[in-house]
């Protein structure tokens, strides 16, 4: 089964439009949504949750259309948006009690466990928390009601590297169960590269690419050569070029690279930057 199926999703605002987005996230997988600020990541998340209305297209969550009794589907979804909107006056203990009434599968023991391991003070009001602490509470809530799908919008931003790594491990562990899935957006590409199965690039409301992460890394490599040497390679195999006064660096499909040319493995961040630059020039 697919955890998320997005078909031809469109939404326009003045100055921005999401253009026929198609995405499929199979159960058991983690998909990373990468895009610069304003690329449409948060819009996509909000469209998925019907916080804003789609102009066109369909979103299917855990097998059910997102306009059909979404409140029931949301029982099985954990969400952390870039701003955790808990009322400032509430403390984590009160939040726990509220959630116990909201989610039929709320597990107060798991919740208490997360508060403890993440060192979240139980009786302090939410408004006194640092951004990292707020995020952690949001994540604790999302993981404490036996959700099958996690939607995370910039959930790791604002956290220090050690905690980010711990939280990424938690997300990764979450999908040890093959009926679980995660869709997470971030502009910290290295975070996504660490744990994702699929990578999707969003640029100005358009999907540039959606591929299995390891395939991408196998398919492409970075070539370091002179401008003349690069002309040997067919232009269709070249994803992006960076020129300096002393040579060029290009991301090229491995199959098109003549043997003997110096190559190095590519990381997703490089691919993203190259592709966005290329797309912006067109």
């Amino acid at each position: 089964m697919n955890a998320i199926e997005i078909k031809n999703l469109c939404k326009s605002y003045p100055g921005f439009s999401l253009d026929h987005l198609n995405l499929t996230l199979p159960s058991g997988c983690i998909m990373g949504l990468i895009g610069e600020n304003g690329a449409g990541k948060s819009t996509t998340m909000k469209l998925i949750l019907d916080i804003i209305r789609q102009d066109q297209g369909t979103v299917t969550l855990l097998g059910r259309d997102n306009r059909d009794r979404l409140q029931l589907t949301k029982q099985d979804i954990g969400v952390v948006l870039d701003e955790v909107g808990i009322c400032g006056c509430l403390n984590p203990k009160q939040v726990g009690k509220i959630m116990a009434h909201a989610y039929s599968n709320w597990d107060s023991q798991t919740y208490a466990g997360y508060l403890k391991t993440m060192a979240i003070p139980e009786n302090k009001p939410f408004q006194s928390f640092s951004r990292g602490m707020k995020m952690k509470l949001g994540i604790a809530i999302a993981l404490s009601h036996r959700a099958k799908l996690l939607l995370l919008d910039e959930a790791t931003s604002g956290l220090d590297p050690v905690i980010r790594d711990e939280i990424l491990t938690m997300f990764s562990e979450f999908t040890r169960d093959e009926t679980h899935a995660v869709l997470m957006s971030s502009h910290i590409v290295s975070d996504l590269e660490k744990i994702c199965d699929y990578i999707a690039f969003l640029h100005r409301g358009k999907l540039l690419l959606c591929q299995e992460k390891d395939r991408l890394k196998e398919e492409y490599a970075i070539v370091h050569c002179t401008t003349e040497d690069l002309q040997v390679i067919s232009p269709s195999a070249i994803q992006g070029v960076k020129k300096t006064a002393y040579g060029v660096e290009a991301i090229v499909a491995r199959s098109a690279i003549p043997s003997g040319m110096a190559i190095s493995p590519m990381d997703i961040e490089q691919l993203f930057i190259f592709m966005v630059k290329e797309a912006s020039e067109i």
Partner: peptide, 21 residues
């Protein structure tokens, strides 16, 4: 007004509630 300031109105949409509720 307090909720809007804290963005609770968005957060509430991520919880299993209907808008009518």
């Amino acid at each position: 007004s307090y909720e809007d300031r804290d963005k609770w109105h968005i957060f509430a949409q991520t919880l299993p509630f209907t808008r009518a509720q």
